[in-house]
Design a protein around this nucleic acid. Structure first.
Lengths: 206, 206
DNA sequence: CTCCGCATAGGACCATGGTCCTATTTAAAG
DNA sequence: CTTTAAATAGGACCATGGTCCTATGCGGAG
């Protein structure tokens, strides 16, 4: 029984299957939440998204597993998905994995394989959350800047000198220095190197 | 018939299948090379790797498709793979895609789907080659530098001042300036921003 | 033993970056 | 109509970066 603040969300229309999965994963030390349909899960997820992963049956009344995956992809809240299916075929497994699913198990599946996949999925979620947190922090700072400051930042990140930036933007070098100072302050970085890395996190290429 | 300098390599132990695939892809304007076994392909590939993609049957005497994929993964020469199989199962399709395969088709497959996959694979190969070319160029420059210059580069990329680098390396600021100048020259960059991006291409983190 | 690459470093000098202070103009918000 | 945020910019000043030239010491290759 390991401590865990991560939840395994189980979505399956078959109650005995849910119970079986829940028991298996509880005994492995994970927090569990069960849902009988994709919509039920989505309602919960919109209100209380949490760190964890999603164990998802493909065949279900209402939204099926693949559709739920697409819905989650479109939303901004990411969660790693492991598919489970009674009657899956190769094309759908390929599609699911290409769309980023962690794994895809036909029933009956091996419990150890599933646990390994859950472990991998939870790890992915942690990494993704960390990366996302950084992106969000940088992005938030970026949007505290004025339009002009953002322009200056873009050119600094391209490696341009104040003089060149001044020419490019039709302002004096003096003004650029001021904007540049504010960019460094608002982005909370101490060097151009850090600024470049921050810019890349939010997709600001040269 | 479009012009193409990219080759589709077909590896299948069944001659009629090879011929059918070759005809289909030739009529779509691609260059084709056929092989009856994984080893045959590998021998060719070791000598003359070329831009393109690989159409690969899973079931074959000798090395099977998945093993060939692993062998290619271990080597430094990347080529995008599309699997074709008569008797594939879901676990192997999942494994193949997770290992980076572009697609995985059970027979019989739809010709349009295959052509789409080939197109995607060739695109991937181009992107991968471009990225790899850049990495190699940067890496080559990196290794023209002396050990000391590389140390200085690492610290410059971390955003440190000459003064701090001097202290860190136990040298005078003057010496650091000289190394730094050589770093910029040998890496062929004109700004710290460019140096940071070059460093990231070869996995030099802060 | 000599030559060369590497690391070291000082002097001189100028370009560049950064930060004070002050000040004006404009446009939007109240 | 006044307040405020944004962009503009000059003066003064100092820190930092970059590039000349010159010079020394060390260790390996020829």
């Amino acid at each position: 029984m390991k401590a865990s603040s991560q939840t395994v969300f189980i979505v399956d229309d078959d109650a005995p299957v849910r119970k079986g999965l829940a028991r298996l994963l509880k005994s492995a030390g994970y927090l569990i939440e069960c849902f009988a349909s994709a919509d039920e899960f989505l309602d919960y997820w919109k209100i209380a998204p949490a760190p964890g992963c999603l164990l998802l049956d493909i065949q279900m009344p209402g939204l099926d597993g693949i559709q739920l995956q697409q819905a989650l992809q479109a939303s901004e809240r990411f969660i790693p998905i492991i598919f489970i299916t009674g009657h899956g075929d190769i094309p759908s497994s390929v599609k699911a994995i290409k769309a980023g699913a962690v794994d895809f198990f036909p029933k009956p599946f091996n419990a150890d394989d599933l646990l390994r996949a859950v472990h991998e999925a939870l790890q992915r979620d942690e990494l993704e959350r960390a990366a996302r947190g950084e992106r969000d922090a940088v992005s938030k700072r970026f949007y505290t800047m004025t339009p002009r400051e953002r322009e200056v930042m873009a050119l600094v990140v391209r490696g341009m000198l104040n003089k060149q930036i001044a020419f490019e933007l039709g302002a004096s070098e003096k003004t650029i220095k001021i904007h540049r100072g504010r960019v460094m302050a608002k982005m909370k970085v101490k060097s151009v190197a850090d600024l470049v890395r921050a810019a890349e996190k939010i997709g600001l290429g040269p």
